[in-house]
Amino acid sequence: MNSFNYYQPKNIEDLFDLQECSADNYRLLAGGTDLLVRLKSGSITPEAIIDIKRIPSLNSGISIEADKVTFGALTLMATLESDEFLEENYPALTEAVHNIGSVQIRNRATIAGNLCNASPAADSAPALLIYDASVVCVSRKGERTLPLQEFIKGPGKTALVSNEIVKQIVMPLPSQNQAGAFSRLTRRKGVDLATINLCCQVNQTGKARFALGAVGPVPFIVEENEGLLLSTDISSEVKKSIISKLMEKATPISDVRASKEYRQAMLTVLGWRAFNTAIERLQNKI
């Protein structure tokens, strides 16, 4: 690893000062599970590393209010994974987080780090998308809140501007008439990124949505709004073909994990699985 200056600001004002004197030649360090890999490979060589872990306002944990849940940027995957309120109300997120890396990785990896790294395969993203999450960003100039779709711009690219950071993630409390589920394809659980990850959300109003990851430059949502998937008069075969049609909006590429044809075929299989789990959860609520 190349050498660098290391700073550990104790509050957000000190962070802003450090960012300004480091003239963009710095990287923020949260859990380091993406950053250290990149520093070691030499793909990035910043002059300064600013460790944000001891900034209290980024460390607000999980706070539950009447109509929303907010997590601090530094909330660990391990904390999200074991939270009972989240498991009950946002099960697709709990499942997604549980699938990230290994125990050791989840004990360090933060939720904001996962989103800021902006990998097309980030496992938290599809779940946060179906739960309509937004991202609270902060800089010296103030705060702004962006829907997650607008935050993730492309592989490795976010909507953050220079010297702006993520402070919190916010999710509205989901309505009682919906249910969600997560599904993932990977070569080896524990250490490999997803070949595909997706979430399905079904709603009694008839709407079904899928958030798809690793099959396009950014995770995105496809929707079926005519109630066909929730109809009891339509056979499983027809429903599968509807899902298959929806999945044609994906633009997977071939890479070390899978070919694009395999990914496209597996999207329907995973979509069908997540759909059935979501339907079961919806029925259990009624």
Partner: peptide, 27 residues
């Protein structure tokens, strides 16, 4: 591996299992 994939460097840090290869000593 040096990159979080094999667990050979696992230690307990304040009681939590972590990969010592992915943490800076200064942290």
């Amino acid at each position: 591996c040096g990159v979080g994939e094999c667990g050979a460097c696992t230690v307990l840090l304040d009681g939590q299992a972590v990969n010592a290869c992915l943490i800076l000593a200064v942290e």
